[in-house]
């Protein structure tokens, strides 16, 4: 499984999916013109990776300072895939970083934790 690395741009986050060491990271801002076009291939890659995981411990660090409304649903789809993998016996840890004062980002992390309870999601304030 090929790792995925995409450098950050003004409108897209840095994507660092190291499938070989089971560590993924999303960092930056997300407001691409077409969120489906940006996230679609990432969802496919994660899907193929997860299909081969058995009892694996996977860590995902999410440090998004801002995402637009159309990125929101695709992020939900991404965590839905990880939740399925967790239900299938993998251990998925999500570190959800947010600005100390930013309730919107924190609340979205809490939404993910509520909808996908098989994930171990830790919210962490950045100070």
């Amino acid at each position: 499984m090929q790792n995925v690395y995409l450098a950050a741009t003004s409108a897209t986050p840095e994507v660092d999916f190291r499938f070989d060491s089971h560590r993924m990271s999303l960092k930056g801002e997300s407001y691409p013109e077409n969120a489906q076009a940006f996230y679609g291939p990432l969802l496919d890659a994660v899907g193929s990776y997860l299909a081969a995981c058995r009892g694996t411990t996977i860590q995902i660090d999410v440090q998004l300072a801002y995402f637009n409304s159309s990125s929101t649903k695709l992020l939900m789809s991404l965590f839905e895939q990880f939740n399925q993998a967790a239900l299938a016996g993998n251990h998925v840890l999500v570190n959800w970083f947010h600005d100390e004062e930013d309730d919107t980002i924190l609340e979205f992390g809490e939404e993910i934790a509520e909808d996908y309870p098989a994930l171990e999601l830790l919210t962490q304030a950045l100070v």
Binding site: Y31, E33, Y66, N68, S69, S70, D99, E101, D102, T104
Partner: peptide, 17 residues
């Protein structure tokens, strides 16, 4: 504040897109 900045940016992006 950081929060106002992010919200203003968010409203700007939603409207412009």
């Amino acid at each position: 504040t950081n929060v106002t900045r992010r919200k203003l940016f968010s409203v700007f992006v939603e409207m412009a897109q």
